[in-house]
Protein backbone atom coordinates (compact mmCIF):
# COMPACT_ATOMS: atom_id res chain seq x y z
CA UNK A 1 0.00 0.00 0.00
CA UNK A 2 1.39 3.37 -1.05
CA UNK A 3 -0.09 5.10 1.98
CA UNK A 4 1.97 2.96 4.31
CA UNK A 5 5.10 3.42 2.22
CA UNK A 6 4.71 7.19 2.33
CA UNK A 7 3.77 7.08 6.01
CA UNK A 8 6.76 4.97 6.98
CA UNK A 9 9.08 7.22 5.06
CA UNK A 10 7.59 10.26 6.74
CA UNK A 11 8.15 8.72 10.16
CA UNK A 12 11.70 7.79 9.26
CA UNK A 13 12.46 11.25 8.00
CA UNK A 14 10.78 12.69 11.08
CA UNK A 15 13.05 10.93 13.50
CA UNK A 16 16.19 11.50 11.45
CA UNK A 17 15.79 15.24 11.57
CA UNK A 18 16.65 17.57 14.42
CA UNK A 19 13.37 19.52 14.48
CA UNK A 20 11.41 16.56 15.77
CA UNK A 21 13.79 16.30 18.68
CA UNK A 22 13.64 19.98 19.45
CA UNK A 23 9.84 19.80 19.52
CA UNK A 24 10.14 16.69 21.65
CA UNK A 25 12.42 18.53 24.06
CA UNK A 26 10.10 21.54 24.27
CA UNK A 27 7.03 19.42 24.76
CA UNK A 28 8.68 17.28 27.40
CA UNK A 29 9.67 20.40 29.30
CA UNK A 30 6.12 21.67 29.11
CA UNK A 31 4.63 18.40 30.29
CA UNK A 32 7.13 18.24 33.13
CA UNK A 33 5.62 21.51 34.28
CA UNK A 34 2.52 19.45 34.98
CA UNK A 35 4.40 18.22 38.03
CA UNK A 36 4.70 21.69 39.43
CA UNK A 37 1.12 22.77 39.03
CA UNK A 38 -0.37 22.03 42.39
CA UNK A 39 -3.09 19.54 41.84
CA UNK A 40 -5.23 19.89 44.95
CA UNK A 41 -7.79 17.38 46.09
CA UNK A 42 -8.90 14.88 43.53
CA UNK A 43 -12.59 14.68 42.92
CA UNK A 44 -14.24 11.74 41.29
CA UNK A 45 -16.88 13.95 39.77
CA UNK A 46 -14.56 16.17 37.96
CA UNK A 47 -11.34 16.01 36.06
CA UNK A 48 -11.46 19.66 35.15
CA UNK A 49 -9.18 21.21 37.72
CA UNK A 50 -6.60 23.91 37.94
CA UNK A 51 -4.04 21.37 36.82
CA UNK A 52 -5.93 20.35 33.73
CA UNK A 53 -7.11 23.90 33.00
CA UNK A 54 -3.64 25.40 33.16
CA UNK A 55 -2.08 22.52 31.34
CA UNK A 56 -4.66 22.60 28.60
CA UNK A 57 -3.81 26.23 28.02
CA UNK A 58 -0.10 25.53 27.83
CA UNK A 59 -0.80 22.83 25.29
CA UNK A 60 -3.10 25.13 23.36
CA UNK A 61 -0.35 27.69 23.03
CA UNK A 62 2.19 25.15 21.89
CA UNK A 63 0.71 22.18 20.11
CA UNK A 64 -1.37 23.84 17.37
CA UNK A 65 1.59 26.00 16.38
CA UNK A 66 3.91 23.02 16.38
CA UNK A 67 1.49 20.99 14.30
CA UNK A 68 0.80 23.76 11.83
CA UNK A 69 4.46 24.51 11.24
CA UNK A 70 5.48 20.91 10.97
CA UNK A 71 2.64 19.91 8.69
CA UNK A 72 2.58 22.93 6.43
CA UNK A 73 6.34 23.10 5.94
CA UNK A 74 6.57 19.40 5.26
CA UNK A 75 4.00 19.58 2.47
CA UNK A 76 5.27 22.81 0.94
CA UNK A 77 8.85 21.60 0.87
CA UNK A 78 7.79 18.58 -1.17
CA UNK A 79 6.76 21.00 -3.87
CA UNK A 80 9.49 23.53 -3.38
CA UNK A 81 12.29 20.96 -3.30
CA UNK A 82 11.01 19.15 -6.38
CA UNK A 83 10.50 15.79 -4.68
CA UNK A 84 6.86 15.82 -5.65
CA UNK A 85 7.80 16.47 -9.28
CA UNK A 86 9.65 13.20 -9.30
CA UNK A 87 6.98 11.31 -7.40
CA UNK A 88 4.29 12.58 -9.73
CA UNK A 89 5.94 10.53 -12.48
CA UNK A 90 5.37 7.46 -10.31
CA UNK A 91 2.21 5.33 -10.30
CA UNK A 92 1.19 7.14 -7.11
CA UNK A 93 -2.09 8.86 -6.37
CA UNK A 94 -2.34 12.26 -4.72
CA UNK A 95 -4.61 10.59 -2.22
CA UNK A 96 -1.98 8.09 -1.12
CA UNK A 97 0.66 10.75 -1.00
CA UNK A 98 -1.23 13.29 1.12
CA UNK A 99 -2.98 10.71 3.30
CA UNK A 100 0.33 8.94 3.86
CA UNK A 101 2.08 12.13 4.81
CA UNK A 102 -0.81 13.05 7.12
CA UNK A 103 -0.67 9.67 8.84
CA UNK A 104 3.10 9.77 9.13
CA UNK A 105 3.18 13.22 10.61
CA UNK A 106 0.39 12.29 12.96
CA UNK A 107 2.49 9.44 14.28
CA UNK A 108 5.54 11.64 14.63
CA UNK A 109 3.56 14.22 16.60
CA UNK A 110 1.80 11.62 18.68
CA UNK A 111 5.16 10.11 19.55
CA UNK A 112 6.39 13.53 20.64
CA UNK A 113 3.48 14.02 23.02
CA UNK A 114 3.52 10.40 24.18
CA UNK A 115 7.13 10.74 25.16
CA UNK A 116 6.40 13.94 27.06
CA UNK A 117 3.40 12.50 28.88
CA UNK A 118 5.02 9.13 29.50
CA UNK A 119 8.16 10.62 30.97
CA UNK A 120 6.45 13.18 33.18
CA UNK A 121 3.94 10.53 34.18
CA UNK A 122 6.64 8.18 35.37
CA UNK A 123 8.52 10.93 37.16
CA UNK A 124 5.36 12.06 38.90
CA UNK A 125 4.68 8.49 39.96
CA UNK A 126 8.13 8.22 41.53
CA UNK A 127 7.81 11.62 43.15
CA UNK A 128 4.54 10.51 44.72
CA UNK A 129 2.54 13.23 42.98
CA UNK A 130 -0.28 10.85 42.29
CA UNK A 131 -1.82 12.46 39.27
CA UNK A 132 -5.11 10.88 38.46
CA UNK A 133 -5.09 8.50 35.55
CA UNK A 134 -8.17 10.06 34.04
CA UNK A 135 -6.70 13.54 34.25
CA UNK A 136 -3.70 12.48 32.21
CA UNK A 137 -5.79 10.37 29.91
CA UNK A 138 -8.07 13.30 29.15
CA UNK A 139 -5.21 15.66 28.48
CA UNK A 140 -3.70 13.04 26.24
CA UNK A 141 -6.96 12.72 24.32
CA UNK A 142 -7.14 16.50 24.18
CA UNK A 143 -3.66 16.69 22.65
CA UNK A 144 -4.35 13.93 20.15
CA UNK A 145 -7.51 15.68 19.00
CA UNK A 146 -5.66 18.95 18.59
CA UNK A 147 -3.02 17.22 16.48
CA UNK A 148 -5.61 15.47 14.32
CA UNK A 149 -7.55 18.64 13.58
CA UNK A 150 -4.67 21.06 13.21
CA UNK A 151 -2.70 18.65 11.07
CA UNK A 152 -5.59 18.64 8.63
CA UNK A 153 -5.41 22.40 8.50
CA UNK A 154 -1.62 22.21 8.20
CA UNK A 155 -1.58 20.02 5.10
CA UNK A 156 -4.08 22.36 3.52
CA UNK A 157 -1.86 25.35 4.24
CA UNK A 158 1.06 23.37 2.85
CA UNK A 159 -0.84 22.64 -0.36
CA UNK A 160 -1.91 26.22 -1.04
CA UNK A 161 1.39 27.86 -0.07
CA UNK A 162 3.83 28.59 -2.84
CA UNK A 163 6.91 28.30 -0.67
CA UNK A 164 8.14 27.75 2.86
CA UNK A 165 8.05 31.41 3.71
CA UNK A 166 4.41 31.65 2.79
CA UNK A 167 3.57 28.44 4.65
CA UNK A 168 5.29 29.76 7.75
CA UNK A 169 3.50 33.09 7.59
CA UNK A 170 0.08 31.54 7.06
CA UNK A 171 0.64 28.99 9.83
CA UNK A 172 1.64 31.58 12.39
CA UNK A 173 -1.20 33.82 11.27
CA UNK A 174 -3.80 31.09 11.63
CA UNK A 175 -2.42 30.07 14.99
CA UNK A 176 -2.59 33.64 16.20
CA UNK A 177 -6.13 34.04 14.91
CA UNK A 178 -7.51 30.79 16.30
CA UNK A 179 -5.66 30.57 19.57
CA UNK A 180 -4.80 34.06 20.73
CA UNK A 181 -7.03 36.56 18.99
CA UNK A 182 -10.19 34.46 18.76
CA UNK A 183 -12.04 35.49 21.95
CA UNK A 184 -11.24 39.15 21.53
CA UNK A 185 -12.23 39.22 17.89
CA UNK A 186 -15.48 37.44 18.63
CA UNK A 187 -16.31 39.56 21.63
CA UNK A 188 -15.64 42.70 19.63
CA UNK A 189 -17.43 41.45 16.52
CA UNK A 190 -20.42 39.67 17.98
CA UNK A 191 -21.20 42.45 20.43
CA UNK A 192 -22.43 44.42 17.44
CA UNK A 193 -25.12 41.82 16.77
CA UNK A 194 -28.57 41.83 18.30
CA UNK A 195 -28.48 40.05 21.63
CA UNK A 196 -30.56 37.10 20.53
CA UNK A 197 -28.20 36.17 17.71
CA UNK A 198 -24.94 36.39 19.65
CA UNK A 199 -25.09 32.98 21.18
CA UNK A 200 -26.26 31.01 18.13
CA UNK A 201 -23.57 32.66 16.03
CA UNK A 202 -20.98 31.91 18.66
CA UNK A 203 -22.09 28.31 18.90
CA UNK A 204 -21.76 27.86 15.18
CA UNK A 205 -18.39 29.58 15.03
CA UNK A 206 -17.03 27.23 17.66
CA UNK A 207 -17.20 24.47 15.11
CA UNK A 208 -14.96 26.45 12.79
CA UNK A 209 -12.15 26.75 15.27
CA UNK A 210 -10.55 23.42 16.16
CA UNK A 211 -8.77 24.92 19.16
CA UNK A 212 -12.04 26.09 20.70
CA UNK A 213 -13.94 23.03 19.59
CA UNK A 214 -11.54 20.66 21.29
CA UNK A 215 -11.03 22.85 24.35
CA UNK A 216 -14.74 23.24 25.01
CA UNK A 217 -15.64 19.64 24.44
CA UNK A 218 -12.82 18.19 26.45
CA UNK A 219 -13.64 20.58 29.30
CA UNK A 220 -17.22 19.44 29.01
CA UNK A 221 -16.40 15.75 29.04
CA UNK A 222 -14.01 16.23 31.95
CA UNK A 223 -16.98 17.45 33.99
CA UNK A 224 -16.32 21.16 33.73
CA UNK A 225 -19.19 21.98 31.40
CA UNK A 226 -21.19 23.93 33.95
CA UNK A 227 -18.50 26.58 34.10
CA UNK A 228 -19.80 27.84 30.77
CA UNK A 229 -22.86 29.08 32.55
CA UNK A 230 -26.62 28.87 32.16
CA UNK A 231 -26.65 29.92 28.52
CA UNK A 232 -25.00 26.69 27.55
CA UNK A 233 -26.87 24.51 29.98
CA UNK A 234 -29.02 22.73 27.42
CA UNK A 235 -26.17 22.55 24.99
CA UNK A 236 -24.01 20.86 27.57
CA UNK A 237 -26.73 18.50 28.69
CA UNK A 238 -27.22 17.46 25.09
CA UNK A 239 -23.57 16.91 24.38
CA UNK A 240 -23.30 14.76 27.48
CA UNK A 241 -25.70 12.29 25.94
CA UNK A 242 -24.33 9.54 23.70
CA UNK A 243 -25.82 11.31 20.69
CA UNK A 244 -23.93 14.45 21.63
CA UNK A 245 -20.65 12.60 22.03
CA UNK A 246 -21.25 10.93 18.72
CA UNK A 247 -21.95 14.28 17.13
CA UNK A 248 -18.72 15.66 18.49
CA UNK A 249 -16.78 12.74 17.07
CA UNK A 250 -18.56 13.24 13.79
CA UNK A 251 -17.57 16.90 13.71
CA UNK A 252 -13.95 15.96 14.37
CA UNK A 253 -14.12 13.42 11.59
CA UNK A 254 -15.63 15.94 9.20
CA UNK A 255 -12.81 18.31 10.07
CA UNK A 256 -10.11 15.75 9.42
CA UNK A 257 -11.66 14.20 6.35
CA UNK A 258 -12.73 17.57 5.04
CA UNK A 259 -9.38 19.27 5.36
CA UNK A 260 -7.39 16.29 4.15
CA UNK A 261 -9.89 15.70 1.34
CA UNK A 262 -9.72 19.31 0.28
CA UNK A 263 -5.94 19.14 0.32
CA UNK A 264 -5.96 16.03 -1.85
CA UNK A 265 -8.36 17.69 -4.27
CA UNK A 266 -6.18 20.80 -4.44
CA UNK A 267 -3.04 18.69 -4.81
CA UNK A 268 -4.53 16.67 -7.63
CA UNK A 269 -5.82 19.78 -9.35
CA UNK A 270 -2.34 21.30 -9.30
CA UNK A 271 -0.74 18.07 -10.38
CA UNK A 272 -0.08 18.85 -14.01
CA UNK A 273 -0.43 22.60 -13.71
CA UNK A 274 3.02 23.62 -12.70
Amino acid sequence: MDIFTIMKNEIKLGFRNPWAYSFLAIFTLVSLSLLFIQSGPISDLNQYTKTTGTFMNLILYLLPLMTLLLGALSITSEKEDGRWNLLSTYPLSSFAFIAGKYAGMFIVLSVIISFGFGLSGLISAFMGQGLSFYTVLWIFIFSILLILLFLGMAVWIGAVSKNRWQALTISVGIWFLLVLAWPILLIAGLSQLPYASIQPTLEILIFFNPAELVRIFVTLYMGGGHIFGPEYYQWIEWFHKPAGALFFMLVCMVWVLGSVGLTIWKWERNRRHV
Binding site: L13, D81, R83, N85, L86, P91
Partner: peptide, 20 residues
Amino acid sequence: KEYAKKIGYMPDHFSLDISL
Protein backbone atom coordinates in the same frame (compact mmCIF):
# COMPACT_ATOMS: atom_id res chain seq x y z
CA LYS B 1 -0.70 4.35 -13.61
CA GLU B 2 0.32 2.04 -16.42
CA TYR B 3 1.92 4.96 -18.23
CA ALA B 4 3.93 5.80 -15.11
CA LYS B 5 5.26 2.26 -14.97
CA LYS B 6 6.59 2.61 -18.52
CA ILE B 7 8.80 5.57 -17.79
CA GLY B 8 11.75 6.36 -15.59
CA TYR B 9 12.44 10.02 -14.97
CA MET B 10 15.54 11.77 -13.78
CA PRO B 11 14.84 15.39 -12.87
CA ASP B 12 17.52 17.97 -13.48
CA HIS B 13 17.67 19.17 -9.91
CA PHE B 14 15.83 18.41 -6.70
CA SER B 15 16.70 17.91 -3.05
CA LEU B 16 16.85 14.34 -1.89
CA ASP B 17 15.90 13.25 1.61
CA ILE B 18 19.54 13.22 2.55
CA SER B 19 19.10 11.80 6.04
CA LEU B 20 18.29 8.41 4.56
